[in-house]
Amino acid sequence: MKKFKLKKIDNKKKTFLYIFMIVVIYAIVMALTSAGIINRYYNGILITVCINLILVVSLNLTTGYLGQLTLGHAGFMAIGAYAAAYFSKTFMTIPQPFSFIIALLIGGVMAMIAGLIIGVPALRLKGDYLAIITLGFGEVIKTILLSMAIIGGAKGYIGIPRVTTFTSAYVFVIITIVFVCLLIKSRHGRAIISISEDEIASEASGINIVKYKIMAFAFAAFFAGIAGGIYAHYMGIIEPKTFGFNKSIEILVMVVLGGMGSINGAVIATIAITILPEMLRSLSQYRTLMYAVTLIGVMLYKYDPRVQVLMCKAKMFCAKINPFKRKEAK
């Protein structure tokens, strides 16, 4: 009984800590902006980080928690971006904050519908086949967008009001993360995780696999659509080729590097992968090379038995010298 109570306090503390961090980060950014240290360039990077965070956290829902590999996340982002942009350009008269929010919601809902359309047949497939069908779906969306003259085609869709600010992007990041966290902690979330652990066993335990798979798929698509809308209203111009296979892979890499099914890891990996290339601008020629080497290196490093032994020893050593060590409950 005592143990249970202790844990509860810990959780409360954690929640408080997270809220505190959210506020502090926002305050720091705002203070630096008004002091002029964060200029337009840095502001752009911060907004890109926010957009990537939404994408990564939402993909984490399908790939990390549900355990279904998808390679077409950028396709949902594209649908959201184009739908939101189309709305904003058509209804220019609606006053600004409302118009932006409605546009984002429309982008999200359109992406969600697309997610359902592809999700229902695709979820019959398993593993690599699901990955392939989502890859194909992403390419289909890109090609169709390329051929539609009404939204600019290959030249890009121009003249979207540039209303995304750091504040709005940040708010949507928080909403996404909180939503995914709450979902995962809920009954539905546990069902989703159980599917990734063992599909047959969870089906035998009475979990409606199809329902939960579609649910995770639809939510992930919804948030990807919102991220697309934010992106469109940040750039002011969107091109179909931005949302290709490479973008989907970029998001997937962030999810995998952060650790599948870990929000904290995903956030750290996203921030690192988005900011590092900007810092290495002087080495721009070698950027892709370094990126590739890092990818292979991290994967090899993670699974090399010698490295694993070293990591274990390091962990034990750290635990030994850790002055803040908590006493083990007996």
């Binding site: 790939t63 590999l69 593993g127 995998v256 990126y291 590739a292 990818l295 994967m299």
Partner: peptide, 14 residues
């Protein structure tokens, strides 16, 4: 499997 996939993609970028 997904680590292998990422490695393959890394190889392709490399």
């Amino acid at each position: 499997r997904i680590s292998l996939l990422i490695t393959a993609i890394g190889m392709s970028y490399l």
